[in-house]
């Protein structure tokens, strides 16, 4: 009997479970007609403030809800609840990212057919969330003017995996001597062709554009889903 090692090809995707679940969630979102947007960024770059403004404005004409991930505390959910009633905190304990299973579990009590927009705020982290698909339609990566314009070059994977970059805290750009042109260059370098928004949650700069962009996306997504059924 030979004991020589033998190589068996398996080609098994490590995150297959997460990917399958994320795909199921995405299908479910499409069938329900809810447009799902996730937000990733480093801690303190203004995800919650931006989301607070988005929820407040969208909830005037739409049914909106949000899931918000943090290691601990319910602070962000409490803050967002002032802008929209349907907000749920996911506390991950020591886990540095959200995964599809956490999203599925958090959504259990909600009727997705009753929603137009669902936002998922990931744990503040520019590394770990990049590996996990949450079933979202659109992934926003936020970069604040106080963080420095080279963030995209330092964390290319998360910028490359996102759909839209949002530069936040534009009201502080001058004070922080933020080089806006360099930031755009760096974003384009790690994710060529990426659409970039410039916003300030404080002054409201760029919020009209962000809202109309989301409207267009919702309509387009629903039209595409309807066509698929036909």
């Amino acid at each position: 009997m030979s004991t020589a090692p033998r190589l068996i090809e398996v080609r098994a995707k490590i995150l297959k479970q997460n990917d399958l679940l994320a795909r199921e969630l995405r299908e479910q979102f499409r069938r329900s007609g809810v447009y799902v947007v996730s937000l990733v960024s480093s801690p303190g770059s203004g995800k919650t403030a931006f989301l607070e403004k988005l929820l407040a404005r969208l909830s005037a004409n739409h049914r909106v809800a949000a899931l918000v991930g943090d290691l601990a505390t319910e602070n962000d959910a409490a803050r967002l609840q002032r802008a929209a009633p349907q907000v749920k905190q996911i506390t991950t304990g020591t886990v540095c990212h959200l995964d599809a299973q956490m999203v599925e579990k958090a959504l259990e009590p909600w009727d997705l057919n009753e929603l137009d927009f669902l936002f998922i705020e990931n744990v503040g982290n520019l590394v770990c969330p990049s590996s996990y698909d949450l079933g979202e339609e659109l992934r926003l990566v936020l970069l604040s003017t106080t963080e420095g314009e080279d963030k995209p070059l330092k964390y290319p994977t998360i910028f490359n995996g996102a759909d839209i970059a949002v530069i936040t805290k534009m009201d502080l750009a001058a004070a922080a001597e933020f080089d806006l042109a360099a930031a755009h260059r760096n974003i384009q370098s790690v994710r060529p062709g990426m659409c970039v928004m410039e916003v300030s949650s404080k002054t409201g700069q760029g919020m009209d554009e962000a809202i109309s962009f989301l409207h267009v996306q919702l309509e387009a997504s629903r039209a595409a889903a309807a066509q698929k059924v036909m």
Binding site: E9, I14, N160, S189
Partner: peptide, 27 residues
Amino acid sequence: MDCPQCHSPSQKIIRGRELEVAALEIT
């Protein structure tokens, strides 16, 4: 990440996102 030849921004990633067990070595 742009095209090294023509520097166009279009990009389709063919390889580089892999996270998979390719093979098992067994006795």
